[in-house]
Design a protein around this nucleic acid. Structure first.
Lengths: 256, 256
DNA sequence: GATAAGGTCTGACGCAACGTCAGGCTCAAG
DNA sequence: CTTGAGCCTGACGTTGCGTCAGACCTTATC
């Protein structure tokens, strides 16, 4: 299978060609993300063309913001699908960009105020950020009480790693199953749909940290699906959304 | 000085009001960033109104992307000026935003291609990122040789923390002195200007990692200041730029 | 063949900003 | 007085490598 005459590169040249450091190669090796094709008798790493291709995939996926763990699962191809991952990642990046824009706006206004006032104006600066972060919460007001909003804000900062990345696989898998169910025109009141709705609720519970006030808001969200805010994640199709809303409604009725 | 009747809050309520976790307060306490006004006999932290104001400043500065170390230096007020920091930070954030846009564009194109092709197209995906990162390097081609570009790319990823944040204070201080020199119409050939140019070169050397090929490119950059690329940092005025260019030119002549 | 220079190897610790136990106090209510 | 809830202080985990440190390998030179 392997061409025994294939040219192999030592770490130094290989790393230079790929634009990464040797230490990075060591790191990927230990993670099992990229193992060299061979080792010399002395233990030196030797990389081949296939390694190069894989490293380029790694670099590409890293460029769009995936973690090394995600990249490993993707490239090892175990039940992780690229399309859904890309949709999720696109949403994550767009969120980051929105927050960056807010920060930039805050800085620019603070600079203007400082220039006008002659000296840095802390109160104004603080207010700017407050206003900006308030406007960031606009849509939550429709659905959440004041205390729930505070707790959401508290959790919001801790979410990125904890849930989004750790649970990304769970969401991706669940959404995929929902899509399948939609494709098969499964009845939202059926056993299968109810199971999906239950898992969906479970994931949301993890997302909300089990806070009852927040879950109350989510129930309201379910109630009028037409009003799902634009800033909510949209990594699933409208059909899936409608399906899960109906199933959740049925589920709620039965529980009452 | 202190109002002995001032209302003090315990960690739990204080944290909730400020929208941070208790653990964050512990962290800031250990860093010396925010010490509680008092402690009870049992060691419980008690925070006052001034602590609240300071915490809000911290949160604000964190929102615009400053590190805790930078925030501490700013709030402790030792030779760190807000105006320059804001300019530097604005540039940093705009750079981040540019890279985010590139990643988003890559994802969107990859999604389109995947949809058209039916299956994920790794080669196309890889190419997209390559093209994007290439266009990212456009201006460097004018000044750097091929090998130097490779090394720049290699270093580019390692720079954010290492130089920008660590050396930010040095740059800010130097730029400030240059502005003063410009304001006093100091002769670029004078002893003082030459000292500034030497320090400038020293910082750049740190920035380039002492790579001679990269420094060669920087010399070319000095030569025709009119051609400074738009993507280069612009946290100093045109006057400072002209001043440092002239001083560097004089310095170069003398060294030859 | 010895030696010096330079590249490689494997740990192990460092960094940013906290989260998350774990074990031990403290405090208010019943 | 007990119980539960909240606070305290370490100490380790996280992410993606950088940066030594000590030991080994290879190559060129004398």
């Amino acid at each position: 299978m392997q061409d025994s005459t294939e040219r192999l590169f030592q770490a130094h040249e290989f790393a230079a060609r790929a634009g990464v450091t040797i230490r990075t190669l060591h790191h990927y090796d230990r993670l099992g993300l990229l193992k060299p094709a061979r080792r010399t008798a002395a233990g030196y790493r030797l990389y081949g063309a296939r390694d190069f291709a894989r490293l380029q995939q790694i670099v590409t996926l890293k460029f769009i913001g995936l973690s090394l763990k995600q990249i490993k699962e993707l490239l090892d191809g175990r039940e992780f699908d690229l399309a859904t991952t890309l949709r999720l990642q696109r949403w994550l990046l767009s969120e980051q960009r929105r927050r960056l824009d807010l920060a930039l706006a805050a800085i620019e206004r603070a600079e203007r105020l400082t220039a006008e006032h002659g000296a840095p104006d802390w109160d104004a600066f603080k207010q700017i950020v407050e206003v900006i972060t308030m406007s960031d919460m606009d849509w939550t007001k429709k659905y959440y009480s004041a205390e729930a909003q505070a707790r959401i804000a508290e959790r919001a900062a801790t979410i990125p790693r904890e849930v989004v990345e750790q649970g990304q696989r769970d969401w991706a898998a669940l959404i995929k199953e929902c899509e399948a169910a939609v494709a098969e025109s499964v009845d939202p009141a059926s056993e299968r749909a109810q199971g999906l709705a239950a898992r969906w609720a479970e994931l949301l519970k993890g997302f909300t940290g089990g806070d009852p006030a927040i879950q109350e808001g989510l129930n309201k969200l379910y109630a009028d699906k037409a009003n799902w805010p634009a800033s909510m994640p949209k990594f699933f199709s409208d059909e899936v959304q409608a399906f899960i809303c109906q199933a959740a409604a049925v589920r709620k009725n039965r529980q009452e």
